[in-house]
Write a protein that binds this DNA or RNA. Structure first.
Lengths: 228, 228
DNA sequence: ATTACTAATCATCGAGTAG
DNA sequence: TCTACTCGATGATTAGTAA
């Protein structure tokens, strides 16, 4: 008779609450509601609505500012993320897997890609999960901030997971790979869990993309990303 | 101590079940799962997954065919509808209100639009909720079956409701209106709850659209539909 | 192997109400 | 008015197990 783990899935009423708030604009600016109003909109009692609010605030999905009357409510980025994840779950069903075409320019990295891609701990995973051993070096592409936001949706795609590990007395972080075409050439976009760059995305392939595509720094490239 | 009304909102686990099945293709073809597999995927026990299946089958959201091992599961149109409604709820948040541009050709109706639009029971509602009294006659537009499917998404939009009523010893059905532009001219697409046509959509406006736009039968028109 | 019933336990609800 | 607590009733869950 051990304790059950805490729920990882939100209850439908809690999700409905976040959706209601987002629909009222709480994903951008604070909105004003009382727990009674919310309960009425959700078809539950004031007490239940209040419990949902407390739970969602506890989970840091929203922030509350209690006033004498009603309260200011605003979704946190984590709260918006929850909704966006739900959205993409449904989107996949009705719109099919996502696709994305983004442009950027080739740039030079710090050369550390070569070091990481040479680690046996990574190589065995690449071989097993991608079916090839990457050329030891990433092609780095710098993208405009606006395009970076578009690329960010791959966070919700299911990619190929590369797990972190320990070796040589240090920790190597995990990453996720997404199928891609770089100027038409098959490759993978690789996103480290703890990224080093702000506006740069990295690509790997069996061969040197820079050589195979004849690319130099500042050359424009077209990236096509495909879900699953 | 009265009985609580039965839930109108699906529990998140039940929704997750429908989503899981749809993701596996059960919205098109039957899929094979055991209640144990589903329970594992949902993070609940076999017994709970089984109860969800029973509840969803009871609600006619899916059909089950029990075999000696596992079971064939397929979502019904009603089940797919549930998911699509959820999808549009989220879509509105992240993508904004929907828009749609469809083409079709002008056609002649049975002339019954004139009769219906002359009923005072409708007119008072049009005046109050649309802000005008429609010209007594609908413009009928025939659309290709494929386009009809695209138009069907307005089912999930929130339009302006026109309620049914009783008068002169008979029943007049309800309808929903959606903001539209017909060849650029402001109008409303009106969808009767019980439609008489298969491939025809009807438009109303303060004036005669046919005259104002100089349209004859078989003339092509462009319809722009806008959500809320 | 399945599905699905029963019983015991846990979670959640709304009513009442304090602050 | 609000938020949010306690509490008894009701729902929902899992373990055990029948078929």
């Amino acid at each position: 008779v051990s304790a059950r783990p805490t729920r990882d899935r939100l209850r439908s009423e809690e999700l409905a609450l976040l959706r209601l708030l987002a629909g009222a604009g709480a994903d951008r600016d604070p909105v004003i509601f009382s727990s009674r109003e919310l309960g009425e909109a959700l078809g539950v009692s004031q007490q239940a609505a209040d419990r949902y609010l407390m739970a969602m605030a506890q989970a840091t999905y929203l922030t509350r500012t209690l006033g004498g009357r009603k309260q200011r409510l605003q979704l946190t980025p984590a709260g918006v993320e929850v909704l966006r994840r739900e959205y993409h779950g449904y989107r996949r069903i009705f719109e099919g897997p996502g696709q994305l075409r983004v442009t950027g320019v080739v740039t030079s990295g710090l050369g550390e890609g070569r070091y990481y891609l040479s680690q046996p701990g990574y190589i065995v995973q690449f071989q097993e999960r991608l079916g090839y051993t990457p050329f030891p070096g990433t092609l780095n592409v710098r993208v405009a901030p606006k395009e970076l936001l578009r690329i960010d949706v791959v966070r919700h795609w299911r990619g190929t997971r590369i797990d972190g590990f320990q070796a040589s007395g240090r920790t190597f972080g995990g990453a996720t790979c997404y199928a891609a075409r770089l100027n038409g050439r098959s490759s993978q976009l690789i996103r480290p869990d703890r990224t080093h760059y702000q506006d740069v995305v990295e690509f790997i392939a069996p061969e040197s993309l820079r050589e195979a595509l004849g690319l130099r720094d500042e050359d424009p490239v077209t990236m096509e990303l495909m879900e699953s």
